[in-house]
């Protein structure tokens, strides 16, 4: 049994008067890549943000290595946990290297110069995300894919053992999606980083994760390995689709290679019977 890195108990969260989910219990295993999947609006981003204390829960507790997060200062949490948000923004004139150096904030004692340790970590973060080549450019001059890697580098510069990623591949082309996920995989393998992310692409989720959490309408439907989740009945329940699954002969992970919506089938729509 792997011990849990993050655990939520009876967690209730949402925005203003809207409660997105209530009384959720989740445990994230140490050293694993856990991906939350589910249809739009199911509460997966809200869950991630609440776990990452970006959003304050309405009720319940989140434990970071069995310690109540409310009892830890936000700066101390920032040394253990970094979150890459869905729509990060920075001034366009900011230089890449400077943005990445912001990740050192929780480790810096004074506001003056970066220590040699800071610089070393920044170099490492740029190296692992392959952003060193454009370190002197301004954010405005970067493509979407480059920008996402820079943001990832900033999160890495925080030097945490937990990384939360909110849809890190959205808006990226196929090659960049894969590149970002491979960086994540490498962090997990080489640095034992515990990773929790939200992904829309269930094939990517299956390929890169140890564990999937399937959510629907504010409930956790089921938790399990990619093989257990990429399964006809589960996908039918979660996404309301009729999926066709096979095993990728190259890497052995399950792949959904085609699907139809159940709605169209029920109605006998034009796409209903071409499977």
């Amino acid at each position: 049994m792997v011990e849990s890195m993050i655990r939520a108990e009876q967690l209730t969260s949402g925005y203003e008067k809207l409660t997105v989910f209530s009384d959720l219990d989740v445990a994230i295993k140490k050293g694993h890549i856990t991906t939350i999947i589910g249809p739009n609006g199911c509460g997966k981003s809200t869950l991630l943000k609440t776990i990452g204390r970006i959003l304050k829960q309405k009720n319940g507790d989140v434990f970071l290595q069995e310690k109540d997060m409310k009892s830890i200062s936000t700066k101390a949490i920032a040394k253990q946990l970094a979150l890459l948000s869905q729509n990060p923004e920075a001034p366009l004139q900011l230089k890449v290297e400077e943005l990445i150096s912001y990740g050192r904030f929780p480790h810096r004692k004074n506001v003056g110069k970066l220590s040699s340790k800071d610089k070393q970590v920044i170099e490492w973060a740029m190296d692992i995300t392959r952003t060193t080549a454009f370190r002197d450019r301004e954010i405005a001059q970067l493509s979407g894919g480059q920008r996402q890697k820079v943001w990832l580098a900033m999160a890495l510069a925080q030097e945490t053992n937990i990384l939360l990623l909110d849809e890190p591949t959205t808006y990226l082309d196929l090659a960049h999606q894969l590149e970002v996920l491979q960086i994540v995989e490498r962090l997990n393998k080489e640095h034992q980083c515990t990773i929790i992310m939200v992904l829309h692409d269930i094939n990517h989720a299956a390929r890169f994760s140890h564990e999937l959490i399937a959510m629907k309408a504010g409930e956790i439907v089921t938790v399990g390995s990619p093989n257990e989740i990429l399964e006809k009945d589960v996908l039918k329940e979660v996404f309301h689709i009729n999926a066709r699954i096979m095993i990728d002969p190259e890497n052995g992970s399950p792949v959904c290679f085609g699907y139809d919506t159940l709605l169209a089938q029920e109605q006998g729509g034009p796409y209903g019977d071409n499977g």
């Binding site: 943000k49 990452g52 204390r53 970006i54 200062s73 936000t74 700066k75 101390a76 949490i77 920032a78 040394k79 946990l81 970094a82 979150l83 890459l84 948000s85 869905q86 729509n87 990060p88 923004e89 920075a90 001034p91 900011l94 912001y102 990740g103 904030f105 929780p106 943001w151 900033m154 999160a155 925080q158 909110d166």
Partner: peptide
Amino acid sequence: DYLQLEEASIKSLGI
């Protein structure tokens, strides 16, 4: 300078 980022990123930095 940090406050020019969007809210989630600032909070994640422990500010």
